[in-house]
Design a protein around this nucleic acid. Structure first.
Length: 404
RNA sequence: GUGGGAUUAGCUCAGCUGGUUAGAGCACUGGUUUGUGGUGCCGGGGGUCGCGGGUUCGAAUCCCGUAUCCCACCCCA
């Protein structure tokens, strides 16, 4: 038997499938209400796109990409995340030069060659939004509110963690200060932290190792090193969230794993899905358009991991819907098929192709959660009628075929 | 990539220290003296016990390998 590849799932379980489409309906609806419109970009892109945007030092690009040389000898890879492709499209379409505000949402599969775990697949699905052309911190707040609205609409509880990563003015200085601090304690820190020092020094602050943790208590804090502009934006952001009744925690160790983020960084986490607890994450990336050869354009966005949300969604109660039609004699089956087809013009309608007794038809109608069970038996055939039972209200009636 | 656990019917699982035709519940399907469901009763189908080797008279059960899932690390959505 040929099986799906490791870490790649089919979404066909009825429960899972319903949750998946339900999520997309809700998320799409809310994104549209925020004035975003749909963008679809290719799953396959030039490898260089991700190397330059996500960053070669990140694990995503460094060791998790599905990368290969295609038949035209192009170095390509399956997208590991969604932002880079959207930014590429934005620049390619010259929207950076056109100016103005452009807001997109997207959803689709992403690919990362990782060791699979619950909530961590090699092919997984994200829903994301990207906003270009708005430098104001109000847009950052808008993003957070949208993510929050989506999660609330789905009945999902979360904690929101917030940080500021600084910008070009303050981040490099802070980074240098942190690196020299790390060097001062380098003999005592763990192997992972030694590696992080060169790959992503800010990550050391997040180390789980107890000894490292206590050493880093004396490390300089980014939150104290922000320049005036970043400091003001961050304060403003907190105020907007307070005003709109969005709860958050400041996590000074929150570092996004992708190199392109600056200023606002946020993550929505759930305590109910195991160790892969981040359900949505995002932030501002004002320099990325320029990195990818576009005209400097402020931007901010977030992405949600759909699979991680699925089991957290509180599904609305399913109510009975549509018609079930059946015949008790073979001679009535053609009539049933005809009526079912007619009914579908306005309603959901399903019919059985086998003659069965009434009890079995009722059972079948119940099984598919139909609202009406409609049956033609000998009596009905003789009178040109159909027997209709409302399975919810337990009422029944007999109707003329032409008024059905 | 590192360390650990699991893998038996469509699903959730039982199967003791190896011993005759591998079980249960749910699901599916048929019937229920012949027109009333979701909540009765009786029956039926469905498993090369993840895959490949080995030990043994005999393996779902022991050993080795391998695949997949799960847990922790790492990382992230």
């Amino acid at each position: 038997m040929i099986k799906s590849l490791r870490g790649m799932n089919d979404i066909l379980d009825e429960n899972e499938s319903k949750r998946f489409t339900y999520f997309l309906d809700i998320a799409t609806d809310i994104a549209k209400k925020y004035g975003f419109y749909y963008i679809e970009t290719p799953l396959l892109e030039e490898t260089a796109l991700f190397k330059r945007s996500v960053g070669e030092s990140s694990d995503i690009v460094g060791k998790e990409m599905y990368q290969f040389i295609d038949k035209g000898e192009n170095d390509v890879c399956l997208r590991p995340e969604g932002t880079a492709g959207v930014v590429r499209a934005f620049i390619q379409k010259k929207l950076d030069k056109a100016g103005g505000i452009h807001r997109f949402f997207y959803h689709g599969p992403m690919f990362r060659y990782e060791r699979p775990q619950k909530g961590r697949l090699r092919e997984f699905h994200q829903f994301g939004v990207e906003s270009f052309g708005v430098a104001s911190v109000y847009e950052d707040a808008n993003m957070i509110m949208m993510a929050s609205d989506i999660l609330k609409a789905l009945g999902i509880g979360y904690r929101l963690q917030l940080n500021s990563l600084g910008d070009n003015n303050c981040m490099p200085q802070y980074r240098d200060a942190l690196i020299s601090f790390i060097e001062s304690v380098e003999d005592e820190i763990c192997q992972d932290c030694k590696r992080r020092k060169s790959t992503n020094p800010i990550r050391v602050l997040d180390c789980k190792n107890e000894k490292c943790r206590s050493l880093y208590e004396n490390a300089p804090k980014l939150i104290n090193a922000l320049c005036e502009e970043c400091e003001n934006d961050f304060s403003k952001l907190k105020k907007i969230l307070d005003d709109n009744d969005i709860k958050y925690e400041i996590d000074t160790n929150l570092v996004r794993g992708l190199d392109y983020y600056s200023k606002t960084a946020f993550e929505f986490v759930s305590d109910n899905i195991g160790s892969q607890s981040a359900i949505a994450g995002g932030g501002r990336y004002d320099r990325l358009v320029e990195f990818l050869d576009g005209r400097p354009t402020p931007a901010v966005g977030f992405a949600m991991g759909i699979e991680r949300l699925l089991e957290l969604i509180e599904m609305p109660q399913e109510s009975r819907e549509g018609y079930y039609l059946g015949a008790m004699d073979d001679e009535a089956i053609d009539t049933i098929v005809f009526l079912t087809h007619k009914k579908r013009a306005t309603d959901k309608a399903v019919c059985d192709f086998k003659a069965k007794n009434l009890k079995n038809h009722l059972k079948s109608a119940d099984k598919i959660n139909a609202k009406y069970c409609c049956v033609i038996g000998t009596n009905e055939m003789n009178n040109g009628t159909i027997w209709v039972k409302d399975l919810e209200n337990k009422t029944e009636s007999v109707m003329k075929l032409d008024s059905f």
